[in-house]
């Protein structure tokens, strides 16, 4: 039986199959890109948000936190931190955020420590704006509750 299992047929299946699925994946990607403008909160993507994202990256926040569940699992989820800490009030959120960032590290013995990143007021506001923008992306109702 096995002698009629030819290598060229196996190869054709590999080539045909992967081409088929790459095309399908590209098609789905195209469709997703059509859908994204309504979902990714791009209308609120201001200069300040863009700068906040850069700060987020250049301080490697994802090295401890998660954002939409991706990152390290050492510190809380921040994709919905705006929802968790703002009470729907921007001023309150920014105030809370600045106080928090400036109080780090807590230096409580044995507790997980967050470094002091020495960001100025404007930078902290940009970072807060980025987190607010992230909270506005349609994540299909994830996370299940406010704790993230």
């Amino acid at each position: 039986m096995a002698e009629r299992f030819t290598k060229s047929m196996a190869r054709n299946i590999y080539l045909g199959g992967s081409t088929f699925f790459i095309l399908l994946f590209l098609g789905l990607t195209f469709d997703t890109m059509q859908a994204m403008p309504e979902r990714d909160n791009r209308e609120n993507l201001t200069e300040s948000v863009a700068n906040g994202k850069l700060l987020w990256e250049e301080n490697n926040c994802l090295g401890c936190h998660t954002l939409f569940g991706e990152g390290a699992y050492f510190a809380p989820e921040l994709g919905n931190v705006y929802q968790r800490r703002s009470m729907g009030n921007d001023e309150a959120f920014i105030g809370y955020f600045k106080a928090w960032m400036n109080a780090m590290p807590t230096n409580v013995p044995g507790r997980r420590q967050m470094p002091q990143f020495n960001l100025n007021d404007q930078e902290l506001e940009d970072l807060a704006a980025f987190l607010k923008y992230a909270n506005g992306i349609n994540t299909n109702d994830w996370p299940p509750n406010v704790e993230g």
């Binding site: 039986m1 096995a2 009629r4 299992f5 030819t6 047929m9 196996a10 299946i13 199959g17």
Partner: peptide
């Protein structure tokens, strides 16, 4: 079995 065995697995 008609055809190549590989196609049947596929």
């Amino acid at each position: 079995l008609p055809g190549d065995l590989a196609i049947w697995i596929f």
